[in-house]
Simulated scan of single mutants.
Amino acid sequence: RVRAGIGYVPQEHSVFARLSVRDNLAVGSLASKKADAVDQVLTIFPKLGQRLDQPAGTLSGGERKMLAIGRAMLGDPKLLLLDEPTEGVWIGVIEEITERLIELAKTIAVIIVEQHLDLALRVADYAYVLDRGRVALQGEAGEVRGNPELMRYLAP
């Protein structure tokens, strides 16, 4: 996947819990062609820079997601796939992750599977709403947000 230009952040078990933050980033940087790639990740997620020697398994849920996203970015992907990037994340950190994903989406393709509607529609240009595995709504993110049918699928 990395050689194909794809970065992937799974829903669960997205970091090496026993390794430090520094070592998790080192694993991700093995695929990087940029000498300053880790520094770029620490610029995007400065909280990680304060936790470099901390075991990744002791990070908060939000910090683990930031680490997983940062590690995926070290492969210099053209496409970033994120599965539930806000699951288990405190609401205050969701905003920070959302802002970073908005910035990343300006330079690479980002596909998010997410139940946190506000995040998904703020990051997305185009959105699909699935209902039991089928596409129930689709369109420009703003159109989907304003579609009166949306509430039917969110609150069945």
Rank of each mutant, 00 (worst) to 15 (best):
R3S: 14
P10T: 12
E12L: 07
S14P: 03
A17N: 12
L19T: 01
S20P: 05
A26L: 07
S29T: 09
L30G: 04
L30P: 00
S32C: 09
K47L: 06
K47G: 01
L48F: 08
D53M: 03
Q54E: 05
L59M: 04
G62N: 00
G62P: 06
E63Q: 13
M66D: 00
L67C: 00
A68S: 11
R71F: 01
L74S: 01
L82A: 06
E84S: 05
P85K: 02
W90H: 12
G92I: 04
G92Y: 02
T98Y: 06
T98F: 03
L101N: 11
I102K: 15
I102H: 01
E103W: 03
L104F: 10
L104H: 04
L104I: 15
A105K: 13
K106G: 14
I108T: 11
I108Y: 13
I108V: 14
A109G: 15
L117M: 14
A120N: 10
L121N: 06
R122T: 13
Y126Q: 11
V129W: 12
R134E: 14
R134Q: 15
G139E: 12
E140L: 15
E140V: 12
E140D: 14
E140C: 01
E143S: 12
V144K: 00
G146I: 05
N147Q: 09
L150D: 05
M151A: 15
